[in-house]
Design a protein around this nucleic acid. Sequence first.
DNA 1: CAGTGGTCTAGACCACTGA
DNA 2: CAGTGGTCTAGACCACTGA
Lengths: 260, 260
Amino acid sequence: MAIPDATGTRNGIGIGIAIAPGPGADPSARAPYARIKAFLKDGLAAGRWPPDALMPSESELVAQFGVSRMTVTRALRELQGEGLVTRVQGLGTYAAHLAPVSSTITIRDLHEEITARGHRHHATVHLARAEPCTDALAPRIGVAVGAPVFHTLIVHHENDVPLQCEDRYVNPACAPEYLHTDFTRITPTHYLLQVAPLWEAQYAIESGNATAQEARLLGIGARDPCLIIVRRTVNRDVPITLVRLVHPGSRYRLEGQFSP
Amino acid sequence: MAIPDATGTRNGIGIGIAIAPGPGADPSARAPYARIKAFLKDGLAAGRWPPDALMPSESELVAQFGVSRMTVTRALRELQGEGLVTRVQGLGTYAAHLAPVSSTITIRDLHEEITARGHRHHATVHLARAEPCTDALAPRIGVAVGAPVFHTLIVHHENDVPLQCEDRYVNPACAPEYLHTDFTRITPTHYLLQVAPLWEAQYAIESGNATAQEARLLGIGARDPCLIIVRRTVNRDVPITLVRLVHPGSRYRLEGQFSP
DNA sequence: CAGTGGTCTAGACCACTGA
DNA sequence: CAGTGGTCTAGACCACTGA
């Protein structure tokens, strides 16, 4: 078995998705609600309260810790939010199943990601125009068939090595000025985040081959494995953008951490 | 641009990582804290309070909604937990930056995942033995060099199609009975979750080629792109297991959804 | 100093579950 | 019915920031 180092970098290039840090451990660690939370968390980790076991009730914890019920409630509600316990009105609090193995992922702007590594980022624009919307695209981008849709094709480089080919469609209704952006200075992701700061997204991560054009732009072979992310973004039920991100498998990967 | 359908399945096989559902929308939607939260969330979505803008203070919201401060605090604390706002003592509450683009991922047991799709799962065991720990492995699995470490190599099939090659090392101290498990009936993931219900994990997701042995077991070509996940699992600072999961890129992908 | 968020108390009313 | 969690109130003390 080849054992890639899951925490280090590889070839100086890597780490695609940044993980939001968990709630700070130190600050206010001595607060009663935090102590109760830690007590329950430790018990779960130690195997007391196996999955589906009934945990102490709020009133029991109130008596045990000598605090008000609101304080206990907060500890339990946060554990519930982290998926560590399940609470049912009228029944009680139960230890959860697979809950702990979860992680919060934040997709970062590639420009920020590269510069955060202390490397140079630059982008080359290969396409930036309006096109008539196709049948296949229309339902996913929320534009009528034949109506104009913005289309950009941009390659992002880290220290002059092509790292990502970004093939993007944008709904003109959401970002009418999109094509006037200088994409060598501002990434589409950054621009769209400004236009619509809050959004929802669906994504798919897969391994496959680049198209012939993508392989040429990335300087890789037709059969070289690529990490491909397709993401569709929606703001208040209005589709904003659909993007296909192709990364050479040898230059990019996603890393993260799960913690309870 | 090929436009994969990010929400449907492909070849009847797909969807690797299951996404935990967001907080229920309906239940207790009329609770005051939920109304305040929705009010702030809508404002953020609508572009009022751009990133870094100062948002209403707790006392302002108390006055505006005619509720007690605890109720306002709860709404704001939950928004903070979701990464939508940043709060600084002495200063105030600020609209956050990229926060919304985040998601909670839960890694499911592959057996559950396959049977949840209504398909048949079966596993073939190609290796299950103790081996002396190598230099490279020792620091990652927490076993002394030369001391025994458990090693299993299992292929998981969905409807008789090889879907995943699971190459796993296990720390005997954490699961002394590991090798006595019938892995055609219980997956290693399932077994280890029982032994150590709460854990942390580091993972890396990448695209690459299978080894010659993996390619043979999966019935794919040496140059076929594969989605490879390497995951290291730790329970209370004690390493439990290190696993390399190789999936044919044409048969497996990870899907998910971000929502604020 | 006034204003902010961080946390807590000691009550309260309610909906729900199972006996 | 007693016990559970879901939510709220009207206060309180504190640490912190910037003027």
